[in-house]
């Protein structure tokens, strides 16, 4: 859906913000650009909608080269969400969400209808919140509006620059989960920038790790990144706890569970679903202070997992 070919950014004074890179994002995929400050991830994101013009390379969206088209027109077809949200303080919430449809020349009635739908989608009742002003909403609520505003014209692509950075951790988790659900429902192609490796691993179908100085260090699934970091930088970046993190992205292998024979109900605490991740299995064990956790498919027990079994499954997932 999105393809960056040899795209790079060098400023007039010679600073290289982004080394020439190749990146592709499949339709409906959520790709996360992650890295420390000054690694060029935001710059790369902004080159996609040409808020920053690339100095080398081409950008293709849905097959067409957008490097030379009218940037204003391009941006209308791409949703854009930023950390500080940037709602217009002098307009009501509903009016904020209606911005892009109105730019397209849609009638007020149509735009209003669409905006209301989107507000429902992000979990804000338009009747309650539509007539309020941005300053009356909490940070989390405002960012929901930001997302609704970005989706108002039904763009195929969504760009997000540290969208959940300005809210507190509890709210952030909530927003992340709700957004993932939303993205799966709508099937939007999303490129998201963050500096938080946990967020990257949680949200991304694939993750691009940027190193300081604008270099793309590795581009792969979270599991690949955590299991096989490409170089020392990535290894440092994902951190010493990458083993633990891998548990969160590795699903339970139902074909290699440990047998139920010999396990009593007293041995078990709460059970987990077979579609859960290894992390949830271990977490359940530790929470219930039991040496095994039962794995169920629906109401049927299909096996158990012990810590050794989890370790084995993790090892196997490398291949």
């Amino acid at each position: 859906m999105i393809r960056l070919a040899g795209v790079g950014k060098t400023y007039e004074d010679g600073t290289v913000a982004v080394h020439e890179l190749d990146l592709d994002v499949a339709a409906g995929e959520l790709v996360v650009l992650v890295g420390p400050s000054g690694c060029g991830k935001s710059t790369t994101l902004k080159m996609i909608n040409r808020l920053i013009e690339p100095t080398t390379g081409h950008i293709f969206i849905d097959g067409s080269d957008v490097t030379t088209v009218d940037p204003v027109h391009l941006r209308r077809g791409i949703g854009y969400v930023i950390q500080q949200i940037g709602l217009f303080p002098h307009q009501k919430i509903l009016r904020n969400v209606m911005t892009v449809p109105l730019l397209y020349g849609e009638s007020t009635a149509t735009a209003k209808q669409r905006a209301s739908e989107l507000m429902d989608l992000v979990g804000l009742d338009p009747a309650t919140y539509g007539e309020r002003y941005p300053h009356e909403l909490s940070g989390g609520q405002q960012q929901r509006v930001g997302v609704a505003r970005a989706l108002a014209a039904d763009p195929p692509v969504l760009l997000m620059d540290e969208p959940f950075g300005a809210v507190d951790p509890v709210v952030r988790i909530r927003l992340q989960e709700e957004f993932l659900r939303l993205q799966r429902d709508l099937g939007k192609t999303v490129v998201l920038v963050t500096h938080d490796i946990d967020e990257a691993v949680k949200m991304g179908d694939r993750v691009a790790v940027f190193a300081t100085g604008g270099r793309l260090a590795q581009f792969g699934t979270p599991a690949e990144l955590l299991a096989h970091p490409a170089d020392e930088f990535v290894e440092d970046f994902v951190g010493a706890t990458r083993g633990l993190r891998r548990l969160t992205v590795t699903p339970i292998d139902r074909d290699h569970l440990e047998p139920l024979e010999g396990v009593t109900t007293g041995d078990l605490g709460s059970a987990i679903d077979v579609d859960a991740t290894l992390e949830e299995a271990l977490a359940a064990m530790l929470r219930d202070d039991k040496p095994v956790v039962g794995v169920k498919d629906g109401s049927q027990f299909v096996g158990v997992l012990t810590p050794a079994g989890i370790h084995r499954q993790l090892r196997e997932s490398l291949r």
């Binding site: 909608n49 808020l51 204003v72 027109h73 391009l74 941006r75 209308r76 077809g77 791409i78 949703g79 854009y80 930023i82 500080q84 949200i85 940037g86 709602l87 217009f88 303080p89 911005t99 892009v100 730019l103 930001g146 505003r149 970005a150 760009l159």
Partner: peptide
């Protein structure tokens, strides 16, 4: 506020 201006530019104004 520069963020508001950036958001408005980014959405295609």
């Amino acid at each position: 506020d520069r963020d508001i201006v950036e958001a408005s530019r980014g959405m295609g104004m």
